[in-house]
Amino acid sequence: MIETNDLSKQFHDFMAVDGVNLSVQGGQILALLGQNGAGKTTTVRMLTALLNPSRGWARVAGYDVVKNGHDVRASVGVLTEQHGLYMRMSANEYLDFFGQVYGLDTNERKKRSDNLLEYFGLMEAAKRRVGEYSKGMRQKLALARAMIHQPGVLLLDEPTSAMDPESARLVRDEIARLKSSSRTIVICSHNLTEVEALADKIAIIYRGKILIQGTLDELKRNVLGSPEYVVKFSETANVDFELPTGVELISRTATSLKVRVEAAEESNPKLLNLFASKNIPVVALQEETRTLEQVYLKVMAGAKGYEYVQ
């Protein structure tokens, strides 16, 4: 579990993180989105007890990041932006070293290390020096390191950025598996499709401040408004009557309508009943696809003071 309150970090005159409030439960994935330099890495470093907050507090896995830094670090697995691999070590040696760091005994180290290397497809290269690895292999090894001690909290910075689609899928599956085993996961990513697929909660950070946070649906509703639906008719229809309460007409063509619906569960059946009562044959009622990218771009446009054009 991660909880922060007014978490802030100032470097001399520069406010890197300003009043961040987060709450991520076990079995949840939070995605931190933002431009480079927005404060994501600094936030993660505070959550790992690497940087002390200038203001506010954070509790990770039940420990205060300032008072119990040692316990926080023992409970967290971190995938850093730079993978931090020792190039003259083999993957086996590297995972063994970090296994020792986290106090695992020899058998457990070997077992976990083999499992992770096997899962990420690195077993064949396990005895090769890391310096000889490709970028994707290095990222997988760094991820394996973050998982070697089976931490309760995982902080992952761009977990799939250097990977081929197959490996990225492998990593996403593993993240989903970890989530289902009640781990608390924070992902910093620019891959919005991946975030959409994985995250339970999303926070957009800009110049150290959280601009907005919530579930994907909440974000879409709050940023882009109520969901939009397209109603398609089988023939030309003359819709000149009043629509039910909570349904707002956006546009129309001879054979379709585009409406904004506040409460779909309530309004959509009413809408369909209305068309049926007017003998207008409806062939489709489809929600307009709205992506996280649209949400992100609109939020950023608002923050930077320009108009968002879809």
């Binding site: 971190v78 850093t80 931090g84 691999l85 970090f98 760091v101």
Partner: peptide, 13 residues
């Protein structure tokens, strides 16, 4: 070289 961060993230005093 960027190798310090994982080490600093370890539970060492």
């Amino acid at each position: 070289r960027g190798t310090i961060e994982p080490l600093l993230s370890a539970p060492f005093d």
